[in-house]
Amino acid sequence: MSTEIVSKKIYFVIWASLMVLLFVTWGVAQFDLGLFNSLAALTIAIIKMLLVILYFMHVRYSSRLTWVFAGAGFLWLMIMITLTLSDYTTRGFVRPYNRVLSNWQDKNWNHLPGDKPMEPRPLP
């Protein structure tokens, strides 16, 4: 239950940390760190989100049930992302035995998605 009144000081501390994190994420983005750039940006975003949810939204002081309700949306978002990516990341892993289809895929799939065409695999 959120009837518990949180001290004002905590809100200011959280706000200050959010601002520091904003500065850090902006700063990190100025350097070329390869893949680590996205990783850092997303990690910091998640930390910021957790701070807002736990303190501003009082979840830290709330019942277990609230934790479940708050988590459910994110869990389901993860289900969607994981399974949809299971399609996009594995396109072309298994090639149809049908020669016509395979040829079609070689011609079209490699050029349709994106800037970096994949190497076509040799037919068995």
Binding site: A70, G73, F74, Y88, T89
Partner: peptide
């Protein structure tokens, strides 16, 4: 909180689209 969960799922389509095309058109 239930409503906010539906809101997350409402935005999900856009985030999903972002992830897919960010992955495809890097």
């Amino acid at each position: 909180w239930t409503f906010l969960a539906t809101e997350i799922m409402f935005f999900s389509g856009l985030f999903m689209g972002y992830i897919i095309y960010r992955h495809t058109y890097f």
